[in-house]
Design a protein around this nucleic acid. Sequence first.
DNA 1: CAGGTGTGTGAAAGCGCTTTCATTCTGGTG
DNA 2: CACCAGAATGAAAGCGCTTTCACACACCTG
Lengths: 327, 327
Amino acid sequence: MADVARLAGVSTATVSRALRQPEIVSPEMRSRIDEAIERLSYRRNLVAGALASASSMTVGVIIPSIINSFFAATIEALEEGMAGSGYQLMLGNTGYSPEVERQLVSSFLAWSPAAMVLTGRRHESETVRALLMSRIPVLEMWELSDHPVDMIVGFSHRSVGQIVLRHFAERNACRLGFIGAYMDKDYRTADRHAGFVETAVQAGYAAPVEIRLPERASAMGGAHGLRELMARDPKVDAVFCSNDMIALGALFEARRLGLNVPSQLKICGFGDLEFAAACEPPLSTVRPPGRQIGFQIAKLLRARLEGSIDAGGCFDLGVELVPRAST
Amino acid sequence: MADVARLAGVSTATVSRALRQPEIVSPEMRSRIDEAIERLSYRRNLVAGALASASSMTVGVIIPSIINSFFAATIEALEEGMAGSGYQLMLGNTGYSPEVERQLVSSFLAWSPAAMVLTGRRHESETVRALLMSRIPVLEMWELSDHPVDMIVGFSHRSVGQIVLRHFAERNACRLGFIGAYMDKDYRTADRHAGFVETAVQAGYAAPVEIRLPERASAMGGAHGLRELMARDPKVDAVFCSNDMIALGALFEARRLGLNVPSQLKICGFGDLEFAAACEPPLSTVRPPGRQIGFQIAKLLRARLEGSIDAGGCFDLGVELVPRAST
DNA sequence: CAGGTGTGTGAAAGCGCTTTCATTCTGGTG
DNA sequence: CACCAGAATGAAAGCGCTTTCACACACCTG
C-alpha cells in the first residue's frame, strides 16, 4: 500500500480511504490511485485491515451438517443476499454437537467476524456468553425463540407436526405412525414429533406408533423404519416422516411391501426437497422457508451492519403444507 | 496477551510460544501461563497472529455448489482429516462459474490461507497465476490432470462413462440413452458423457439418444428427461443418467410410463448417493471416492504443511461400479 | 473582510500478535 | 576448572493496514 501511495503521490491514508470509502476521496485522487493499484497489481491484505479496524468483512455461519441439504438452500440464499456487500461467509459445521459448536464459535470469534449466524436456539451457555461478549450481530435460524441471543429467523417445528396431523385427519387417517431420525441430537425433529403427537392426542387419536432411527436421516433408514413400523402395527395407515429423505425410503419400502400409497398408506414428509415432486406418487410434505430464511438474514445483517437498525427480534417465516398424491 | 504475560511474570514472547509450540517452553512456565490465561479468560486474536506470521491457520476450500451433495462427503471427510490440526476450513462456492472462482480465490488469498483446495482442473489463467504467486500448497480435486497446479486427487470421469457402457453391454442392452444435466457448465458431466459415447461407438452401438437438461441435476429433470427420451426413441432399453438424482427421477418416471425396470429399461446413475440402495428396484450406479478424496487431501495437506513432502502430483483414487437391480 | 463551515488530505500512532537476535543459565567435556 | 553446546527466556522490531487528529484550503455569510 505504501508503494501504491508513493506511485500515486498520496499518503497511505488516502489509499486506504479510496479502497474502503471511495466517495470521500476526490475523483482525481481516486483515479490516480486506481491506476497505481493496477500498475503494481496491488492486492490488499485483508488480515492487516482486519487487525487495524478490529473487524473483518467476514460472517461466520455455523450449521449442524453440510450433508443435510436443508441448510444448503439457506446458505445459498444468504450468499446471494450478501453478494456485492463485500462480506465473505465462513462456514463451519458442528455435526449436531453443541460442544463442537462452542469450539467453532470460539475460533470464529478469534477472527473478529462482522457477524455470526448459528443454527437453532439452543447453545451451551459458554457459547452464548462468548457471543454476547463479542458485541457483534448474532443471528439464529431455523427456529423461533422468545429470547434470542439477538435476532432469530425461522419457523415453529411444533406447528409442522400439528399441520401434518390435521392433514392426516382431513384425509381420514385412522392409525398413525411416525418415523424420526437422530432425535436425541436433532431436537428440531423432536419438536416436530412433539407437535404431531400432542395434536394427535388432542384430536382423539391413539398415540402414534413411533420408530426412532439412531442415525442421521436417510432413505435406507426410512425403508427399514417403515418395515419395522408395519411389523409393529399393520393397521397403521398414515406415517409422518420427519424428513423427506426418510419419506422417500418409506415410499419405496411401501412398494416392496405391496402397500398402495395413498389408499392403504399415506406418507407425508418434511422439507419439500427437490425430489418430492418427482416421486411416484408425488410426495406430500411440509415446505420450510429455507431460502427465505437466507434472504431475511441477509437483509437483517445488512441493515444491522450499516447501522440502520439495532433491535433484536424473532421473525416467524411460517411453513406451507404441500399436499400431493402420497396422502 | 500482555496482560497474561504480566500476570504470569513472563514476556509476551514466551506466552506466544506457549500457545504455538508448547514443547519449547518449560513445564513450569507453561503451567503459570495456562493459569493466567484461565484467570483472565484470555482469547487469542488470530487476526493479529496471522498478520505477524504472514500465514493463517486457514485452508480455503472452493466447490461448485453446496447443494450438490457429491462434494459434501468430501468436505466432511476433509474436515475429519484435518480435525485436531488447528486448521480451519473456509468454504466458498462458485455456482460453476470460473469467474466467481477467480474472485473467490482472490479474496481467499487476501486472508493468507495456509493452503487452497479447488474443485476441478480447469481454471481461468488469472486464477492459476494468483495461486502460483501465493506459493502455498494447492489441491485440486474430483478430477485427474497431467499438469496440476500443484497436487490433484480424484478419478477419471471418462472412465466412468466407459464402465457404465461395459456394464450395459454385459447386460445385453441394445439401444442406449443418456440424460445429463448442466453439461455446458459442469464439464465433468460432459467428460462422463464423452467416455460413455466413445466407448459405445467403439463397441458397435448406434450413437446414444441424448437428453441435455439445461438446469442443475434434479429428480424432476430426470423425470422429464426420461419422458422426452422415450418419446424420441421408444426402443431405448438402457439409460445412463449423469447423476443419481436424475436417475431417481427417471426411475419414478419409468414407473409412470409403465416400463418395468430393469427388464424393459435399465437405468444406471452416478454418485451412489445414499438413497440409491434404498430405491425399488435398487439403483445401479458408479461410486466416486468422495470421502477418500477428502481424507487423501487432508493427508497430503498435513504432510505438506509439516514440510515432510514437497512434490506435487496426481492421485487417481478410481471409481467402483455398484451393480444393483435397476440394470 | 473577519469569522465560520465544510471538504479533502497527511502524519503518525496504533491494532495484537510473532519472531529474530541477544542474553542468561544450565550441565557436560577435556 | 575454563570452555562450550544447548535450552529457555526477553527485548524489540515489525506484520500492513486503519483511523484519529490536525491542518490547509475553498467557500459562504453578515
